[in-house]
Design a protein around this nucleic acid. Structure first.
Length: 957
RNA sequence: GGGCAGGUGGUGGAACGGCAGACACGCUAGCCUUAGGAGCUAGUGCCGCAAGGUGUGAGGGUUCAAAUCCCUCCCUGCCCACCA
């Protein structure tokens, strides 16, 4: 037999399979249960296939080959997500029509995919840029339009004044145009939207019934961003209420101002009453010019301006608060207006700090602490007054575990003139406490003849007074000049329950970092969590969660607001002022308005143009024959919509098309959809976690709502392949020059080796680092498999006895490989086959049945070599028509067990016993062991025995 | 800043309450070969000649037994990011 030469055999079998397309095709007539295994179809970029593609495609190839071999009728299709920006940019650069470059790329991809031995049903191949396909993309647009799920409204686009063009987000770098480096501004243009928000609730709810990675599900939930809260009406005058949305109605007593987004209608409506209208309008104009990026970049430096002349009345307190316009409030979320509670919201806090607005605490994390604080405050005042009378200066500190209370105390301390500077003052202070009814409860001798005293009053408020020794190391280091002051005496006021060290507070004060309202400095952050209400009228003392409910009910009863649920999810803007996409099938008539292109006129063909550059509107506008048309309704002159659709629209329904890719009457027939869908296993990159997967679910739900299909989730089971990282630990990228081209690996080692290597690298879903050196291991493995064929012998009685152990192992391997494929644990499946091969190598003779079992197990992973070895045995049909092997349960059971003997949980010995050995026998055997005798000289000392059948016995002494 | 995933030898990883390091790469020694990015044999977590000890990011806890479960902290990667 010749040496293993992948180049030769792989080409041979690829040609063989190409001649037998049924091997990889779905069977429309079969009565076997169906299995739809789908890869995320690739964008055929000029760079060719990436090793990341190979990973996902190999995984789904193994899985679908396996499904076929266990008797399923498998649909495993492939196609091209062919519209998109890179082809268009290439056209702008070179003048080559995108269709041409795309077709060329598709050819490359096809060749590459075939060279990997991936078993796709090529008869169903689709290309989203072909009119046969995008005809149905356009049909979907009309379908959504007919049901009110597609609509037109003004929306912001990135606009470059110097290029006079609309830019995609990717073309805006740091707020400037990537081509001319001019500032990008925001311009309102009429755009088409899909009303995905109609399905927000279902898109969250139905995640429960699909088998997807939890991380993907939560990412979708976060993206949809459901928040439950309330809208509240703040009265401005008798005709106008400012409606705000809040999830923290419980903090409303702490609202010290309101903020509206620059786009808010209030500014226009109350124009006449606004005293500083010019200023406000100037701010609004400036804010509107900012891109989203610029707005978010300024997170830490919020801007805004008060709208003078109007106030908003808090319905709970009847207080009138100022109104600001600021671009940290988003016009597109909630009502575009918020009530600001700086004490309990970081953004509001930051803004309040900057513009010196009121900060009012209304939530405490600990009601007891809060009450204690109030009492401590009283004590402090009492001491302060008494000390003043005696002309005594005492530094009193007080506080609790919660910085909020520390703040309050701190503020009270402001007017206390602090420290006892010497022994005389210290003694005076002690006398003063006694006079005020404090009793000395503890006395602690410190070094150098100094003493620390603790006083307490009847209510348990404690004063801890003593010298400053070493406690302030930090301060000493940082504030050398203050050293003298620190060598005095200090006193803490404490409550029984909460002890406090206000060292940090003092440090900040000395550093002059603290201003009166600066809560953030004191606690590092604003208290945004739920807690208990304080300073909130009749709601004080109650828990946040409960109060929100009560307050919302009160609002509803008094018609001042209502419970509201909002979502972050926005409607999907699908208009692209771009050439290389599916034209939007709409016509605008001066008389009749927007009209659908009649279905019979689809597809609206993408016209030929000379200049692909966007010009403010899509390049389609340069073709006058395309632009000018007749109105489908009045037959008068009309103009076509010039924009194309976002490529995500094309990929939102492609999995339906695979069920019936040649259908000329429908996007897919109801029967075929019913036969093949939903997708049973969907494999693809995690970068599509939100957009593509969410859009595909939206389309499915829309079809379901209007009774086109009988299910409402497209992908029953989803798995992501992990990233393949370059050898240098960075992402593979052309500019870094660390990209691995799968063609090179195929050329050097063969497709089977590449497939095995990528599967052996690690768990499918983990990101893995590419290591070219390691590939050779898989090459050696296949080489060994190849060489085994020399040892195979037909079965006879003599060899049977000899190979008993191997029979055992092979059936264990069948079990393991089968389970691993089911769970997509391909790395361990391969390693178990390696173990088998290592054992087989040691034998002189291998039974033919066992040899066949091995190559059948290997066949989904390394199809070429398996097919070659199979035919080499004299078979005339493909190995992929074989049934998947079944293991013999009798052969999988171990006859002997290795029992680990532990003493106090540490392994001290091992004994081999029959698999069904009883605890008593094992115990006896264990005690015979010299090693165990060493650790347990006296059997009577054993306190406890833990016995795990077939595994271990543990003696506790 | 938020969410998610993760941290195990020189490397990729295995084990996912019960022998830590399967399998593979690399490395070391020997054999074979005209030669080796070939093949074969043996070894390979760390400390130690050995007996033995020690070891899964750090610290604590639960348990007869923890890489695995719970708490605190640290680090890395990915995604989202002013959503009231």
């Amino acid at each position: 037999m010749q040496k293993y030469n992948p180049k030769k055999i792989e080409k041979k079998w690829q040609e063989y399979w190409a001649k037998k397309p049924k091997l990889s095709a779905a069977d429309e007539k079969s009565k076997n249960p169906k299995f739809y295994c789908l890869d995320m179809f690739p964008y055929p970029s000029g760079d060719g296939l990436h090793v990341g593609h190979v990973e996902g495609y190999t995984a789904s190839d193994i899985y679908s080959r396996y499904q076929r071999m266990i008797g399923k009728n498998v649909l495993h299709p492939i196609g091209w997500d062919a519209f998109g920006l890179p082809a268009e940019n290439f056209a702008i650069r070179t003048g080559v029509h995108p269709a041409k470059s795309t077709q060329k790329n598709i050819k490359t991809f096809t060749k590459q995919i075939k060279s990997l031995g991936l078993a796709y049903d090529w008869s169903r191949e689709i290309d989203t840029s072909s009119p046969e396909y995008y005809r149905w993309t356009q049909w979907f647009f009309l379908f959504l339009y007919k049901h009110g799920l597609a609509y037109r409204k003004k929306a912001k686009v990135n606009w470059c004044e110097s290029c006079k063009t609309v830019l995609a987000n990717e073309q805006v770098e740091d707020g400037v145009c990537e081509r001319c480096k001019n500032e990008v501004i925001q311009k309102d243009l009429e755009q088409w939207f899909f009303k995905i928000t109609d399905f927000a609730e279902d898109l969250i709810k139905d995640l429960d019934k699909i088998d997807w990675p939890e991380s993907t599900k939560t990412a979708q939930k976060n993206w949809i961003g459901k928040s439950e809260g309330a809208t509240v009406k703040f009265k401005i005058n008798k005709d106008y209420n400012l409606e705000v949305f809040t999830t923290r109605l419980d903090t409303i007593f702490g609202c010290t101002y309101c903020v509206v987004a620059p786009e808010h209608s209030l500014i226009e409506k109350l124009k006449l009453q606004i005293k500083n209208l010019k200023e406000v309008e100037k701010y609004v104009k400036l804010a509107k010019k900012k891109t989203d990026l610029q707005r978010t970049e300024l997170q830490k430096n919020k801007t805004g301006i008060e709208i003078k002349g109007i106030k908003a009345i808090n319905p709970f307190t009847n207080e009138a608060v100022p109104i600001f316009v600021a671009d940290y409030v988003l016009s597109t979320y909630g009502t575009g207006a918020v009530m600001a509670v700086p004490a309990h919201d970081e953004r509001d806090f930051e803004f309040a700090k900057k513009y010196k607005l009121g900060i009012k605490q209304v939530i405490t994390p600990n009601l007891d602490a809060y009450e204690d604080t109030v009492r401590i405050l009283e004590v402090l005042r009492k001491i302060n007054n008494a000390a003043k009378k005696e002309n005594l200066k005492i530094w009193l500190l007080g506080g609790l575990g919660c910085a909020f209370h520390a703040t309050i105390i701190y503020r009270a301390c402001e007017d206390l003139d602090l420290i006892a500077r010497d022994d005389i003052e210290f003694k005076k202070a002690i006398r003063l406490f006694e006079k005020l009814g404090f009793k000395k409860i503890k006395e602690k001798k410190l070094s150098e003849g100094l003493t620390n005293y603790i006083f307490a009053d009847k209510e348990g408020i404690e004063i801890d007074i003593g010298p400053n020794v070493g406690e302030w190391g930090l301060l000493k280091k940082d504030f050398e000049e203050d050293k003298k002051n620190l060598n005095g005496f200090e006193a803490y006021v404490l409550s029984k329950k909460f002890h406090v060290n206000l060292k940090e507070l003092l440090q900040k004060k000395r550093n002059k970092e603290i201003d009166n309202m600066d809560l953030a400095y004191l606690q590092g952050k604003v208290l945004v969590e739920d807690g208990f209400l304080v300073n909130s009228g009749k709601y004080s003392g109650l828990a946040s969660e409960k109060v929100r409910e009560e307050m919302a009910n009160w609002l509803e009863k008094n018609k001042l607001g209502k419970k509201t649920t909002t979502y972050k999810l926005r409607d999907w803007l699908i208009s692209r002022q771009r050439y290389w996409g599916a034209p939007i099938p709409m016509i605008h008539c001066e008389k009749c308005g927007w009209q659908m292109v009649p279905e019979k006129d689809l597809p609206v063909l993408l016209p030929k143009v000379k200049d692909y550059r966007p010009k403010g509107t899509s390049p389609l506008g340069t073709n006058k024959d395309f632009v000018n048309t007749t109105c489908p309704k009045c037959k008068g002159k009309a103009k076509r919509e010039l924009d194309t659709m976002d490529t995500f629209v094309c990929s939102s329904w492609y999995f339906f098309r695979f069920a019936d890719s040649k259908n000329q009457k429908e996007f897919a027939s109801k029967d075929k959809i019913k036969k093949w869908l939903p997708v049973d296993l969907y494999v693809g990159g995690a970068e599509h976690t939100v957009l593509h997967l969410l859009y595909a679910r939206f389309f499915t739900k829309a079809l379901h709502k209007y009774k086109y299909i009988g299910f409402n989730e497209p992908f029953a089971k989803l798995r992501h392949q992990g990233l393949v990282i370059a050898e240098d630990g960075r992402k593979m990228s052309k500019s870094l020059g660390n990209v691995i081209n799968p063609d090179d690996i195929v050329k050097q080692y063969g497709a089977d080796v590449l497939r095995l290597y990528e599967m052996f690298m690690g768990p499918l879903e983990d990101s893995k680092i590419w290591n070219t050196k390691s590939i050779v291991g898989l090459s050696r493995f296949l080489d060994r498999v190849w060489k085994l064929s020399a040892k195979r012998k037909t079965q006879n009685a003599k060899t049977q006895l000899k190979t008993q152990n191997l029979d055992n192992l092979i059936h264990k391997t069948i079990k393991k490989v089968t389970e691993d494929i089911e769970n997509l644990h391909f790395n361990t499946a391969i390693s178990s086959m390696m173990i088998l091969v290592n054992e087989m190598e040691k034998e002189n003779i291998i039974q033919i049945t066992n040899y066949k079992l091995l190559i059948t197990l290997l066949s989904p992973f390394a199809p070429h070599i398996a097919e070659e070895l199979w035919h080499e045995l004299g078979h005339k049909k493909s190995i992929f028509l074989e049934k998947w092997p079944q293991y013999d349960p009798k052969l999988v059971v171990e006859k002997e067990a290795n029992i680990v003997v532990q003493v106090n949980g540490k392994v001290r010995d091992q004994i081999t016993v029959p698999a069904d050995a009883k605890e008593n026998d094992i115990k006896r055997l264990a005690f015979e062991s010299e090693k165990i005798k060493k650790y347990i000289p006296n059997v009577d000392n054993i306190r406890k025995i833990i016995f795990v059948p077939g595994r271990l016995i543990n003696f506790v002494v």
